[in-house]
Structure formats: structure tokens, C-alpha cells
Simulated scan of single mutants.
Amino acid sequence: MDYSLILKNIAKHISLTEEEESYFTAHLQPLMIRRKQFLLHRGEICKYSAFVNMGCLRGYTIDADGFEHILSFAPPDWWIADMYSLISQQPGLLNIDAMEDSQVWLLSKANQEKLYIEVPKFERFFRIITEKSLVSYQQRTIDSLSLPAQERYLNFCKRYPSIIHSIPQKYVASYIGVTPEFLSKMRNDLLKQER
């Protein structure tokens, strides 16, 4: 696995010297995750932020009736973690698994804290990432409470254009809060409107 994608991701927000890049990459741990394999189970303490180099992960909960509720997807060039657990070091609320064979870079909470001290600009980088995550979750909550299903679907398409056609539709349905059958009908209706 090479570092080019993760370094480009970081360069969107902060500039690193070659020495700082080397210091950062020395703290990353590569991990291959097979399809349906878990990065994190609900109830475990999240010790890592994961950057997706290849593949796709999802973060979700399962309710008392056994229904999955997907909160986020992480295609290549995205970070994923159970933020509540990572920050509080309390047992997590999310399951995170691979939707396809995936390659990720793991950054431990301990190494992240070390980066803050040794390369202070990383504090800015992770603050920006955390703020974007907070804004995204808030917008998703508002959308779920106030928008009709069709608008939630269109927002999903804008947010995740790279995976809309490559992931099973049952996962899209779970994310926007409808049944797969309803999603199929809605997509057909949208296609008819476009003609």
C-alpha cells in the first residue's frame, strides 16, 4: 500500500514537509479487511481512526428488532471511526465493517495524540475533519427528520457519488430510512421523470 492518497487527503487542509510526511506515515498501520469482516463491533472501545485507501466501509447500528441503520459510508479517501468511542474511550455504539475487500490505514488514538505534540499542525487537520463529521451528522439528522424520502435519496447521491451504483441497494435504503422495495419504486419514478 502506498501513502499517496492519504497524503493528498491531508494536503487538502495542511502543508507538510517531507520530514513531517515521513514522521506521519511511520505512525500508520496498514490493514486488509475482507468483505463482511469487522473493523469494530458495537461495545468495543474504538482505538483507531481508519482511512480508506481502497474498498468501502460502513458504520451502522442494529435496533432491538434486528434492523440495520447505516449512519455512514467510507469509500476511498474517507476517514471512519466511532467518534463517540474514540474521543471518550467508552464502549462504542457502532459496528464498522467492510462492504468489499478493503485496504485501510489505521492511526491509533495514542499516535494521533503524539502527532499533536510533535507536529502541531495535525491538531488543525483533525479538528477540521472532526468539524466536518459533526456538520455531516447534524445535516443527516435534520434531513432524516424533515425531508421526504426522495430528497434524502438525492442528498445521498450528492454525498456519495462514487458508490451510488456499486453498493447493494439495501444499504442505500437503510441509509435513507426506507425499505429496499420503496427505494426501487422511487428510483424508477425518478428515471421516468428524467425522460
Rank of each mutant, 00 (worst) to 15 (best):
G43L: 10
Y48V: 06
I70C: 14
N95V: 03
W78K: 12
R58T: 03
Q37G: 05
Y48L: 02
D65N: 11
R42S: 15
E44Y: 05
F67P: 00
L93H: 07
R58P: 00
T61K: 14
A26F: 05
Q29N: 07
R35D: 10
A64R: 11
I33S: 01
A26K: 14
F67I: 09
G59S: 10
I45R: 13
I96T: 04
G59F: 02
F73S: 00
P75A: 12
P76W: 00
Q37I: 01
D65H: 07
D65Q: 12
A81T: 15
P91I: 10
A26N: 15
R35S: 14
A26S: 15
A26L: 09
E68A: 09
E100P: 06
L40H: 10
P76V: 02
R34S: 12
F73I: 02
Y48Q: 09
S88D: 03
C46L: 04
A26W: 01
P91W: 06
M54R: 15
A98P: 07
Y60P: 09
H41K: 15
W78N: 10
I45A: 10
P76G: 05
D65C: 05
R42E: 15
N53G: 14
A74N: 02
Q103P: 01
F67M: 12
F73Q: 01
Q103W: 09
S72D: 14
V104S: 04
F38C: 04
A81N: 08
P91C: 09
I80N: 11
F73T: 01
F38Q: 08
R58W: 02
R58D: 03
N95K: 04
A81K: 07
L57K: 05
R35C: 10
S88V: 01
R42Y: 05
A74Y: 01
L39M: 11
Q29E: 14
G55T: 11
Q103N: 15
L93D: 03
E68K: 07
Y84G: 05
S102W: 11
A64M: 13
D101Q: 03
F38S: 12
N53R: 12
R42H: 10
L94M: 13
T25V: 15
G59E: 03
Q89V: 03
S85P: 02
D63T: 09
A98Y: 05
G55K: 06
H41C: 04
P91F: 08
L28C: 07
E100Y: 07
F51Y: 13
D101K: 03
P30N: 08
L31S: 03
A74P: 01
H27Q: 13
W79V: 11
D82P: 12
T25G: 06
D77G: 07
A50E: 11
F73M: 02
L40I: 04
V52I: 15
R58L: 04
S49W: 06
A98G: 11
L57A: 09
A81P: 01
H69L: 05
I33E: 00
W78I: 02
S72R: 10
Q90A: 14
I62E: 11
H27W: 04
K47H: 14
L86M: 06
Y60H: 12
V52H: 10
K47Y: 13
L40W: 01
Y84C: 02
F38E: 08
A64H: 13
L39A: 14
P30Y: 07
P30F: 05
G92E: 02
K36L: 10
H69G: 02
P91S: 11
R58E: 06
Q103S: 13
S49D: 08
R42M: 13
A81F: 03
Y84F: 13
M54T: 12
I80P: 08
